[in-house]
């Protein structure tokens, strides 16, 4: 660990960015997220999250992607 903190996307604040370290999920989840550009090494920004464990909107390159709260909890990012 390089001293940078690793947290899941759900712990990111809206507006905060991080680099994807790992997706803790099965083959199918990893594939689906990869195909939308969310994969290890990629910088993503959390745009917003709905309350009550609602979906989380991420900015990946120039595209906005909305994913469920559960999936967001499986994406580990390194905050810079």
């Amino acid at each position: 660990m390089s001293g940078k903190s690793q947290i899941t996307v759900n712990h990111l604040q809206a507006g905060q960015s991080g680099r994807v370290v790992q997706i803790m999920g099965g083959h199918s989840l990893v594939n689906r997220l990869n195909s939308l550009g969310i994969r290890p090494g990629k910088r993503i920004t959390k745009v917003s999250a709905m309350f009550m464990r609602g979906p989380v909107t991420l900015l990946v390159d120039r595209a906005q992607v909305a994913i469920g709260f559960g999936m967001a909890g499986k994406i580990v990012v390194e905050v810079d």
């Binding site: 689906r32 909107t57 992607v65 909305a66």
Partner: peptide
């Protein structure tokens, strides 16, 4: 029923 996973167009 899976969770939502969609691209939001500009």
């Amino acid at each position: 029923s899976p969770e939502i996973l969609i691209e939001i167009p500009p």
